[in-house]
């Protein structure tokens, strides 16, 4: 987390997605971010081969949320042996859709002058949380009431020491919006909404007890809810 009001959405450290030994010397590490309402795939390309690499291009397979490169992979100069270059690739969500297992799985093809290579990676569902995800209070109440009990998923977050206001503010930096807060029997109940890029809404209740560092998160609506909610733990930390 950051200091004061300068908190921003959590971005995971890069992990290796493509091993050099499986890609004729090309190693790719990456992560995902959402900045200014734009999703980015942040890539480090390393040339571990003996010869120069050129002519890079990238393509995604169809995926659950229609993620697609919004432009070409910009590797402006040839990549010399032992050289690493950082590339930030903006993504759109208007690509072809196909439900993947798991839902946030992304299959990627990268080519260079040597060959075409394939890898898959998992993106955090939070990159799909849009900035206008604060649901009208009236709509929230009506929607919550209409949802059958069996659509509710619940999980627990242990050892989190934020109070409800700090949690609310931290979650808002990840586009998880608090619509109402109530205190009942010494428990703070935060009612929250999330909107995904494909228009699906997730409604959540975050329950915190004063002096207890364990939170309970309950969420409702479609299957995306569960992975959306599991992100809350990362966002809070």
């Amino acid at each position: 987390g950051g200091v004061g009001t300068t908190t921003s959405a959590y971005v995971a450290p890069k992990t290796v997605w493509l091993l050099a030994m499986k890609a004729k010397g090309l190693e790719i590490a990456g992560t995902f971010s959402r900045r200014g309402g734009v999703i980015h795939m942040e890539l480090s390309l390393t040339n571990k081969a003996m010869s120069v690499m050129t002519d890079f291009a990238i393509q995604f397979n169809r995926n659950s949320f229609g993620l697609a490169p919004a432009g070409p992979l910009q590797v402006l100069t040839p990549l010399s042996p032992n050289q690493t270059t950082e590339v930030s690739l903006p993504l759109s969500t208007v690509g072809p859709v196909m439900k993947m297992e798991p839902l946030n799985n992304l299959q990627v093809a990268v080519k260079n002058n040597i060959d075409v290579f394939y890898f898959s990676c998992l993106y955090p569902i939070s990159i799909l949380f849009v900035e206008d995800g604060k649901m009208e209070r009236q709509v929230f109440l009506a929607t919550w009431k209409d949802i059958p009990n069996e659509n509710e998923a619940q999980f627990h977050i242990k050892d989190c020491h934020l109070n409800s206001d700090a949690a609310s503010s931290k979650l808002q930096s990840s586009n998880i919006f608090t619509i109402a807060k109530r205190t009942v029997d010494n428990q703070d109940m935060l009612y929250q909404s999330i909107k995904l890029t494909n228009g699906i809404w997730v409604l959540a209740e975050l329950r915190l007890q004063a002096g207890n560092s364990n939170y309970t998160v309950s969420g409702v609506l479609e299957r995306e809810s569960y992975i959306a909610l599991s992100y809350m733990e990362l966002a809070l930390r």
Binding site: R137, Q138, L141, W144, A180, R182, T183, V184, D185, Q187, M189, Y191, E205, S218
Partner: peptide, 20 residues
């Protein structure tokens, strides 16, 4: 904040979730 009945509705929701 305007008293549009929603404040009360959220209180009832929280109450019903805590003491179903």
């Amino acid at each position: 904040e305007l008293d549009d009945g929603l404040d009360e509705a959220f209180s009832r929701l929280a109450e019903s979730r805590t003491n179903p």
